[in-house]
Simulated scan of single mutants.
Amino acid sequence: MTLSIIIPTLNEAVALPATLAALPKGCEIIVVDGGSRDGTAPLAARLGARVIVSPPGRARQMNAGAAGAHGEQLLFLHADTLVPARAEQLIADALMHHHWGRFDVRLTGRHPMLAMIARLMNLRSRLSGIATGDQGIFLHRHTFEAIGGFPEQPLMEDIELSKRLKQWGAPACLHQRVCTSGRRWEQHGVWRTIWLMWRLRFAYWRGADPHRLVELYR
């Protein structure tokens, strides 16, 4: 089965080359750009990706990428995330027994708390069956289409997608790790970011409108 890798971008010219270089050969690579001003789209094209231009919004961009993809399997990947070796085979093997899945994550950076944050993210995901975009969500195309794709909301689109997918079954939680930049935590402060993300998740669980939550996130 063919794998399409869909990467939403917005001003990711610095991180994107390493991400593309780590991808397996022979897969369809689609970069969906939401209006970058740093040359991300032409850079992606020069590096061999197929570029789709979309209105901004990660969910909207990923849906646009999926609509233009040809693969029978889909992997949604952040622009600052490196996949493990043999990622395409790991995904194919996992999807023989599951409708969907994700990788464990490792956060790269200098702060000593990043390793603990990653371990807790992976543990929480195993216990809850909820995956985040940082972990590289993959699934069958027909499953993605059957649930209507990502909800086009400005925040928590990965959480909502996971909730829909859990109705089809538990995710394949692969121990192999994607490496994701810890820049968000380092730039805004580790404890401050942890507190903010838990506040947002709790509010969303309580039924808060994601359009209001995104104002707090920003």
Rank of each mutant, 00 (worst) to 15 (best):
M1Y: 11
M1I: 07
S4Q: 13
S4N: 14
I5V: 15
I6E: 10
I6L: 15
I6Q: 11
I7W: 13
P8D: 12
E12F: 04
V14P: 01
V14E: 08
A18P: 11
A22V: 06
C27I: 03
I30P: 02
S36R: 04
P42C: 10
L47C: 02
V53E: 12
A59D: 09
A59W: 08
R60Q: 08
Q61M: 15
Q61F: 08
N63L: 07
G65D: 12
A67C: 03
G71F: 12
G71C: 12
Q73A: 04
L77A: 00
L77M: 03
P84Y: 08
R86V: 06
A87S: 14
L95V: 11
H97S: 04
V105G: 01
L107S: 05
R124C: 00
R124L: 01
A131Q: 00
T132A: 02
D134T: 02
F138L: 05
L139C: 15
H140S: 08
H142I: 06
I147K: 02
F150Q: 07
L155F: 09
M156L: 02
E157K: 01
R164C: 02
R164F: 01
K166L: 09
A172Y: 06
A172H: 06
A172V: 06
L174V: 04
R177K: 13
R177S: 03
S181K: 07
Q187G: 04
H188F: 15
G189A: 13
G189F: 14
V190T: 14
T193Y: 13
L196F: 12
R199C: 05
A203I: 02
G207T: 11
D209G: 08
P210F: 05
R212Y: 07
V214M: 07
